[in-house]
Simulated assay, not measured.
Amino acid sequence: MTKEEKLVVIDSLAEQLRAYPHFYITDIEALNAEQTASLRRKCFEKEVKLVVVKNTLLTKALEKVEKADAELVKVLEGPTSIMFAHVAKAPATLIKEFRKESDKPVLKAAYAEGCVYIGDNQIEALCNIKSKDELIGDIIALLQSPAKNVISALQSNAGQKVAGIVKTLESRNN
């Protein structure tokens, strides 16, 4: 591979690292052609982009986009593929589902929701990760809960009692 070709690959990887907020570094080496095709099909269905990369080129691309965390660079040994996704937990759930058929892909590292996860033992944590929108929804639900309880109480029999108490207090002030 010429230096110009390497620069094109580095630029392409850097562009994908900018375009996708989450990526998983995996090892899919031992998969046969049928399993690889099945994995690629599942990636397509889940809107995950799977790319086989050279470690040195990925390292340079990570440096270019300023995501070259020391822990991420350490795992770049042996065969490497990278899964790009817009949803943080999509590759993790895909890996977990695919492992019912095979012992690969093995997670080397992941960059999800701005955090670095190292090692295959992080799959479960990544499957349970919530997106920013999901967290905002949870917070809104928690904030609405007390207001709903007050409204519900006011609309029920207790609400009539509260209204009676308010009227009594108003009449005393007059």
Rank of each mutant, 00 (worst) to 15 (best):
I25Y: 05
I95Y: 01
P91D: 10
K108M: 03
A88S: 14
V150D: 04
P21Q: 13
Q160W: 02
F84P: 01
A92E: 09
V9W: 00
L94M: 12
K74Y: 03
I165V: 14
F23G: 02
S102F: 07
V53F: 02
V150G: 05
Q16P: 00
V48L: 06
E170D: 15
E34H: 08
A141S: 11
V150P: 01
K161G: 03
V73P: 01
A92N: 07
G119N: 08
N121T: 14
K54I: 06
E77K: 15
L143G: 01
T168Q: 15
K74H: 04
D133S: 12
P105F: 10
G78F: 08
V73T: 11
K42L: 14
V8Q: 07
I140K: 14
K6D: 09
K67V: 05
I165D: 04
D120H: 10
Y24C: 04
A110H: 04
E66D: 15
K161R: 11
V116H: 02
V73H: 06
P146M: 05
A33Q: 11
L94W: 06
V48Q: 10
D103K: 14
V87A: 10
T36Q: 12
N157R: 12
N121H: 11
I10V: 15
P91Y: 09
V162I: 15
S131P: 01
A88T: 09
K108L: 08
H86T: 14
A88E: 09
K104D: 01
S81I: 05
Q160I: 10
K100S: 08
S171Q: 14
E113Y: 00
T56D: 09
N121G: 10
D138K: 13
N55V: 02
D11A: 14
K161T: 13
A14V: 02
R18G: 04
Q160S: 09
